[in-house]
């Protein structure tokens, strides 16, 4: 029903939201299975990245194939390349929120690493080396930024532009 009453930009936003949640769960589970740190077990982390990329490709192929079938069943012959002024406005507003989110994530990452280096008995993530925290933090932050971007778009599409 939601897909039927939405244009292609909104439909891809729905897919992106589900995609980011799926990949975050996949990657988060992968992190819990890692043994050792990046310095000693770099190949495991590279393997996790590779498996995440493969999972992403499989998800995207399945999702967009499903979307194509749904659009065909609904008789939706709208030009999928059509992006109008409302789509652009919604994307611009969503990008602003995503930018705030990205800035916050980067500040948190670097403040944490700085504090870990200079404060004795710093209580957070004491068993995670700074480089590992940075690597996983950047990956999860990028997923969070994408989620915020698409979720904001969907909110705007569903309420008002």
């Amino acid at each position: 029903m939601i897909l039927k009453n939405s244009n292609f930009s909104e439909q891809t936003a729905w897919i992106s939201v589900v995609f980011t949640v799926f990949i975050a769960v996949f990657y988060g589970y992968g992190i819990t299975q890692l043994e050792g740190s990046f310095a000693t077990h770099a190949e495991q982390i590279v393997g996790l990245w590779m498996s995440t990329i493969i999972a992403s490709i499989i998800f995207v192929v399945i999702a967009f194939s499903g979307l194509a079938v749904i659009r065909k069943l609904n008789g939706d012959d709208e030009d999928i390349s059509l992006v109008d002024e409302r789509d652009e406005l919604i994307e611009a507003r969503a990008t602003r929120w995503a930018y705030y989110n990205l800035s916050t994530c980067i500040i948190i990452l670097f403040v944490h690493i700085f504090c870990q280096g200079v404060i004795p008995n710093y209580p957070f993530f004491t068993n995670v080396p700074p480089i590992d925290f940075l690597i996983h933090g950047v990956m999860l932050s990028s997923l969070l930024v994408e989620f915020v971007l698409r979720a904001t778009q969907l909110y705007r599409y569903r309420t008002a532009a």
């Binding site: 009453n5 939405s6 244009n7 930009s9 002024e85 599409y157 008002a160």
Partner: peptide, 15 residues
């Protein structure tokens, strides 16, 4: 040259 959803949003006073 816009989407049908944009027309619907204009008519509903949402855009």
């Amino acid at each position: 040259g816009v989407t049908r959803q944009t027309i619907a949003a204009i008519e509903a006073g949402k855009y």
